[in-house]
Amino acid sequence: MSAVPLPAPAAARPRLAPWLLRLHRPALYVWTALVLLTAAALLWLGGPLTDAAASAWDQYGACDWSAHCSYDQPAILRYKDVANYTTLAVTAVPFLVAAWAGAALFGREMESGTAQLTWTQGVTPTRWLTTRLALPAALITTGTSLLVLLHHLAWTAGEGRIDTAKPWYDTLTLHANGPTTVALALTGLAAGALAGLTLRRTLPALCVSLLAVACTRGLADLAMPHLWPAVTRVTDLRQDPAGTGLTVDQGLVTATGRHIADPGCGSTLAPECRALYERLDATAFYTDYHPASHYWPLQLTTTLALLTLTALLTTIGYVTLRRTTGGRRRGAAV
């Protein structure tokens, strides 16, 4: 620490955060409502709806089908609907964040010149950007984490009790259950910021940030199974290929141990399949997959990858802003 007292006392720093909240009050209300409503729906889903659906499935399981069988079908359907809608809502969060950040938080302010107005009001562009990233990032992280946690709890409550509940590796459920959604929401914020700062127009920034999040989400889906070593399971040709979880690859093992593509014939119970496998010199099925125990390693590696991307986009945003406005070099007092 330097012994020289700073010329500007802390009280004399421009107060940006209250004005950011004031200017984006509608967005804050919408976000709060979205989080609260979805959270309420998830609590309802994890509690009463899961119990009702689970007992309905018990009734269904007890049916002997020789006579009239009655079970609470509406409870099962209600569970399914609410589960689907809440999963979709949690999945949509990063997209909503990206659209808002690109359009309202950055694009519109750059287009209308109100960002520049702030920079000529004793606030450096760097500090402006920091406030505009940090405060929303805190609110987004808090809200999304809450939703993801409740989604995970609701999903766990139904696990093994409800036949129609989604498996852990269902792509929407997989992300909605874990921190990848929080990381993707932050990527959306950073992408929106960068799009707004570079395009300087509302609509293009909105489209580009949405597209960026959609692509990132797609890439994350593709990359996730490869971010952690998969487990290989070999099964006899008389059975079907086995290994329940996030499948990476599936095929046939030949007598030499080579992995070849599965023609999709099925088990050797069918004589024509047996002939086909003999022709291919196949001895077994193999499945490269992630069992449920890989859930956290997969979640954490993907989250890390997304956060790295977010940091990269944020850095580019700062560099772009500094290059456009000619701010002082890094390390200089701001």
């Binding site: 107060r15 004005w19 004031r22 107005l117 009001q121």
Partner: peptide, 21 residues
């Protein structure tokens, strides 16, 4: 450029907030 959603009084209060001292 001005923030259209603010009142004139709010706009001036923002000026005060962003230019302390």
């Amino acid at each position: 450029p001005l923030h259209p959603q603010l009142t004139i009084a709010d706009t001036l209060r923002m000026g005060a907030g962003l230019n302390p001292g």
